[in-house]
Write a protein that binds this DNA or RNA. Structure first.
Lengths: 145, 145
DNA sequence: CTCAATCTATACCGTTTTGGTGCAGTTTTA
DNA sequence: TAAAACTGCACCAAAACGGTATAGATTGAG
């Protein structure tokens, strides 16, 4: 019942880029974010393909945010790495629930569906800017979730 | 980011026992809950050791709830099977977070901690009786989470 | 008393996911 | 033109997951 390490790393990486401001090469990102170097590169690639990060090749190249930190939510980062937030596999389209209870469908289904969407909503309400800007207090972030 | 199949099964199994009312042998539970037989037995064992289910050996033996369905929460069932609800591994005692951000500790830490406890609280507020009794509407359950 | 029904205990196993590494290329620019 | 970067794959070990097997202990019905 937890995020993958990779998604966790991705949040740190994006946050590192946000704090850095400009272009940063993968090695620097890796060091600053405390993420293994090759793994950093792999994650950065996903972030680039997902449109959150931009890259520049060649010497003096590197990575930078493709969009403003206040337009990047925790949800968008997490869902780029992990599958969509979904607590129960019943909620996946592919998965056919093997147990139909008396109550319309499976009660647990519906409960997990609501919990999942609630969670996603909360993650979607927090931006990388929130998590990065010193002007935003932790308390104010925690208040809204 | 999801419950294990096993925890999902456990909820169904407990709910099956709750509906059955009395003693039920593992094979019957397995069929009613649509859970593979040997796996049912394995899960029942954990439920017994966790004090949620009682068992009786010998012919005419079987399994029954050890406590009233309205005293069994979804949380207690899930946490008996999976690890405690915790979205980020940063929250585990064993895990030492490798990244201390500017904000007191790791911002993401604190966010996930709050989300995890919120989730646990919600799962803790729904009982097996809620999910089983026909007199309790799904709407009323969903309202409180 | 005995034997079948049932639970108990432990070990095992294949597959998938996770977390991570390596390397051969390509592009840019100093 | 060569070094500094990113890119694209392919690969790998370990852990988690979902499930199975088997041998043994206990109880109660006949």
């Amino acid at each position: 019942m937890r995020l993958t390490q990779e998604a966790d790393y991705a949040l740190r990486i994006v946050s590192t880029l946000a704090k850095g401001g400009g272009t940063m090469d993968s090695r620097t990102v890796s060091v600053k974010a405390c993420v293994p170097e090759r793994f950093t590169v792999k994650i950065l690639r996903k972030l680039v393909l997902g449109g959150i990060v931009a890259s520049k090749k060649g010497s003096a190249g590197g990575y930078m945010l493709a969009v403003s930190p206040d337009e990047i939510t925790m949800l968008s980062v997490v869902e780029l790495i992990d599958e969509p937030i979904s607590i129960s596999r019943c909620l996946d389209g592919e998965y056919e629930c093997t147990k139909n209870n008396d109550k319309s469908c499976c009660v647990f289904h519906m409960i997990f569906a609501k919990l999942s969407s609630g969670l996603a909503e909360k993650l979607g309400s927090i931006t990388i800017a929130d998590a990065t800007d010193d002007s935003v207090s932790i308390e104010s972030i925690l208040e809204k979730i």
